[in-house]
Design a protein around this nucleic acid. Structure first.
Length: 476
RNA sequence: CGAGGAGUAGCGCAGUUUGGUAGCGCGCUUGGUUCGGGACCAAGAGGUCGUGGGUUCAAAUCCCGUCUCCUCGACCA
């Protein structure tokens, strides 16, 4: 008892320091471990299981949109990177380069992919010949490497897992539409599977992808009011098509360059999930994304009939389609309660002699920390209902926080006060890079996305007429 | 690259001021008793004190060098 209080206090103390809370919880819950190379992480089974759910859900959506999975090499000739001028400028500082292989120095260094636009563009240049080949929509699940100076598990690591989709279209309009369609797909996924609301919109020139015509992003608000870029889609125009000679013969017989777009989300989504829903006790996983949706903790395990009853209940719930774990380890019940709460399992069932005698089971909700009893005979319905409610509660909670923390600002002072208070700041912007830079210097905040609804009259920085309405925030 | 901090058992740390032959908590192993919010008892395993040199009868401790890691800053399409 005293020990438990001490444990909860420990976690609560570090929650006060949010970044530290995050790192500690991620490591303690055994989602990841640090790798031997600085800035790398080893994803452990519990963390990887979340990633597998994300993969499954996204693959289903991509499939409906005509996207097929494929795989391209990890090593890219250095010369590929330099074919698109802005692209090389943006990525060169953070690529890892292979200079030796097979015991000899390589004639041309190879880049460990930081993203695959170039090598996929190279292949698309060979594959695309006719308008009948378009649209060409491929996606790959892979690892990429970006040598970041400071890192944090899932949020920014030297190596991370992601999916990157790359499409070629016949017209600019088709490629632009695909860019927005994929952004909407991501947002729907975040809402449905991660129970996480996001702001979507176009990025400023400063924040856009190296080599893109336009970049769109989705931003999620974390517990501390900071923003996390959870995914991006890019419209490339003909920039990469011209660099890699992606040409096709059109319906009119003329040779034309294709229009390309790309999109990606990474294991950073897991970080977003943790930071969006977690509390002082640790993780809270939304039921659709939880590797274990229900954990069953037997009480007085060695008493006759207890374990058998637990197994029977686990089998019934598994048959009903829930992801269920029976914790029949030798640890004490109190230890198991805390352990699985910290790991974010949305629903816990306790089953002991008292419950069995009454024909009930005890159920505990991770989101509200409420305990209640329900008849064993109705277990499937009760569990299904509660899991649904937990998902709704988590989404509603996160959405209320985000919308409650979007404040307007008319000048730099208000903007600074806004982000200091852990808010997203909605403000006008004249469109000048100088003003965007000044906001960064003055308030350590960046333009996250442009709001579609453009109604702020003046620039928050210079006071001139506003061209855009922008969500400013501090970001991870 | 700038500023600060830390390297002692798997993890977290004490011991360094004032040199005396390595300790605590957690974890781990074995056996037993337990189980409705991190249980208890007993026994046990585990350390070239980051590293190289120096001073000394004697160095985790003092001196010089060196390596690594962490935090903040800068950087982060």
């Amino acid at each position: 008892m005293a020990k438990n209080e001490q444990f909860v206090k420990e976690i609560a103390d570090i929650e006060a320091d949010f970044p530290q809370w995050y790192t500690d919880v991620v490591i303690k819950t055994k989602l990841v471990d640090y790798g031997p190379v600085k800035g790398t992480m080893v994803i452990r089974p519990y963390g990887y299981a979340i990633w597998e759910i994300i993969q499954r859900e996204l693959n289903a959506r991509f499939g409906q949109m005509g996207v097929e999975n494929a795989y391209f090499p990890m090593l890219i000739p250095m010369s590929f990177l330099t074919k698109e001028a802005e692209h090389v400028e943006g990525f060169a500082p953070e690529v890892a380069v292979v200079t030796h292989a097979g015991g000899a120095k390589l004639e041309e260094p190879l880049v460990v992919r930081p993203t695959s636009e170039t090598i996929i563009g190279h292949m698309y240049g060979k594959w695309v010949e006719s308008w009948r080949d378009l649209p060409l929509r491929l996606n790959q699940w892979c690892n990429v490497m970006r040598w970041e100076k400071t890192t944090r598990p899932f949020l920014r690591t030297s190596e991370f897992l992601w999916q990157e989709g790359h499409s070629v279209h016949e017209t600019a309009q088709a490629a632009e539409e695909e860019t927005l369609r994929m952004l909407a797909c991501y947002a729907e996924f975040c809402k449905t599977v991660l129970c996480m609301p996001v702001l979507t919109g176009r990025k400023t020139e400063k924040e856009k992808f190296a080599g893109a015509v336009a970049t769109y992003g989705m931003e999620a608000m974390m517990h501390d009011g900071k923003s996390l870029q959870a995914g991006t889609t890019h419209y490339m125009g003909q920039n990469f098509a011209k660099a890699f000679n992606i040409q096709f013969t059109g319906k009119d017989g003329a040779l034309e360059y294709g229009y390309t777009m790309s999109y990606g989300v990474s294991t950073r989504l897991i970080g977003a999930l943790i930071m969006t829903h977690g509390d002082a006790r640790g993780l809270i996983l939304p039921p659709p994304a939880a590797p274990v949706q229900v954990v069953i903790v037997p009480i007085a395990m060695k008493k006759e009939g207890v374990l058998a009853a637990c197994n029977a209940l686990a089998d019934r719930l598994k048959a009903a389609g829930f992801r269920v774990k029976l914790d029949d380890t030798d640890n004490s019940p109190g230890w198991k309660f805390n352990e699985w709460e910290m790991k974010g399992v949305p629903l816990r069932i306790e089953l002991g002699p008292r419950d069995i005698e009454n024909g009930n089971f005890t159920v505990f909700r991770r989101d509200t920390l409420e305990k209640s009893e329900a008849p064993l005979a109705e277990a499937e319905n009760v569990v299904g209902g509660l899991l649904g409610q937990i998902g709704e509660t988590l989404y509603a909670r996160a959405e209320a926080r985000m919308h409650g923390r979007i404040v307007p600002a008319a000048n730099l002072g208000e903007l600074l006060a806004g982000v200091d208070g852990g808010n997203f700041v909605r403000a006008g912007w004249c469109g000048a890079r100088a003003c965007e830079d000044q906001v960064k210097t003055f308030a350590q905040a960046t333009a996250r996305v442009l709001d579609e609804k453009n109604d702020m009259p003046v620039c928050v920085c210079c006071g001139k007429k506003a061209e855009h309405t922008v969500f400013f925030a501090r970001a991870y």
